[in-house]
């Protein structure tokens, strides 16, 4: 009977001791949250930093950009993350939330670019798309092809319907779901860009901006656009199995799978490393991370981690981040942000 009681008392004691563990008083590793797009790059830097210095390897959670800001802006103190990664710039509403929770000084660091590609299997020919084609093929509502200003539910079934120069294949696009940062960037860059190419939609932007955003950001739901989940590897596998389908994902996945898939030309620029770096490829977005200035001297290793990330051997044109598919910034921008990081200049 006494034997039976031992685990019970142990459990009770453990519970009690856990209850008394109030917020940890110190933390000896950096805690990073945020975008799943920046995750593959931040993790490489973290690993490099952990192995080459005496510090512990930072912990990186992939929560998505929005989820990252939510955690990041929750307050100052060791129980809150020190850095959040993001595949978009911080919103003014998020800066406000941060301020109300006492996170007054945030340092913004742009780290490079990521391209979003539309790719298909190598078993078929490469596609030559324009932003307008992309809009017409994927928007839920498009201008009536018979003329007139009214919007009708998207009638296009094949790529040839959209543009006679395109192949006579069914429109079947595998892309990210609305929770994904890639989707946000895609609708903003490709769909809005495509909408601007159409006069009636462009006119709408001046008259009724909200309506314009709604039209451009709403993707068709009639089976021609398939939400394939957040796993880009899965999209690549599906493209390999179905040569008629087109997939939307980040450039790093194209870079790793050049033997299976090929990126479509968009506005006659192919998604290559150079094309995106020079800013010619239209669907590319900047990547960021944000640092809580108040933590910089509290958490051990923060400054070293920041200098590792902003060193030429990491984010430079020959750095190890480019090996992982990140597109570096021009030298001038790199210098500017490296300087910001050194002085921890907060955003105004």
């Amino acid at each position: 009977m006494i034997k039976k009681l031992i685990p019970l008392t142990a459990a009770v004691a453990l519970l009690a001791s856990l209850g008394s563990v109030q917020a940890q008083s110190s933390r000896d590793y950096i805690s990073i949250v945020g975008s799943s797009t920046v995750y593959p790059f931040a993790t490489v830097v973290a690993e490099q930093f952990g192995k080459s210095t005496a510090n512990k390897t930072p912990k990186i959670e992939s929560t998505g950009s929005g989820g990252g800001f939510k955690l990041f802006c929750a307050g100052v103190g060791v129980e809150h993350p020190d850095i959040t990664n993001s595949s978009r710039a911080i919103k003014s509403s998020e800066i406000e939330t941060c301020k109300t929770n006492g996170v007054a000084e945030i340092v913004e660091v742009k780290i490079g670019y990521d391209g979003i590609v539309l790719a298909n299997s190598k078993k078929t020919d490469v596609m030559q798309l324009t932003l307008k084609d992309i809009f017409l093929a994927l928007a839920k509502e498009v201008p009536d092809p018979k003329g007139g200003k009214t919007l009708v539910p998207n009638p296009y079934k094949t790529w040839k319907d959209v543009n006679p120069d395109l192949p006579d294949r069914k429109i079947e696009v595998l892309g990210p779901p609305p929770t994904s940062g890639t989707r946000d960037a895609f609708v903003e860059l490709a769909m809005e860009g495509g909408g601007q190419m159409i006069d009636s939609i462009k006119a709408m932007k001046k008259e009724d901006e909200k309506r314009f955003t709604a039209v451009c950001h709403t993707i068709r739901e009639d089976g021609h656009y398939v939400e394939a989940g957040e796993n880009d590897n899965l999209i690549v596998q599906k493209l390999d199995a179905n040569p008629d389908a087109v997939g939307i994902f980040g450039f790093s996945f194209l870079d790793q799978n050049t033997d299976k898939v090929q990126g479509a030309f968009v506005d006659s620029v192919q998604p290559t490393f150079e094309g995106i770096a020079e800013g010619k490829y239209p669907i590319s977005r900047p990547l960021f991370f944000y640092v809580k200035k108040a933590h910089a001297d509290v958490i051990p290793g923060m400054r070293e981690y920041l200098s590792e990330f902003t060193s030429e051997k990491a984010w430079g044109p020959d750095g190890y981040l480019t090996d992982k598919g990140m597109i570096p910034m021009p030298e001038k921008e790199r210098k500017k942000f490296a300087e910001n990081v050194k002085n921890l200049t907060p955003i105004q």
């Binding site: 590793y29 995750y39 952990g50 512990k56 390897t57 990186i60 959670e61 992939s62």
Partner: peptide, 17 residues
């Protein structure tokens, strides 16, 4: 609860990430 994370170091105690 944040256990889906990139963690390189082998955890050494019950409170390590």
């Amino acid at each position: 609860i944040g256990m889906v994370a990139f963690i390189v170091d082998i955890p050494g105690s019950f409170t390590d990430p």
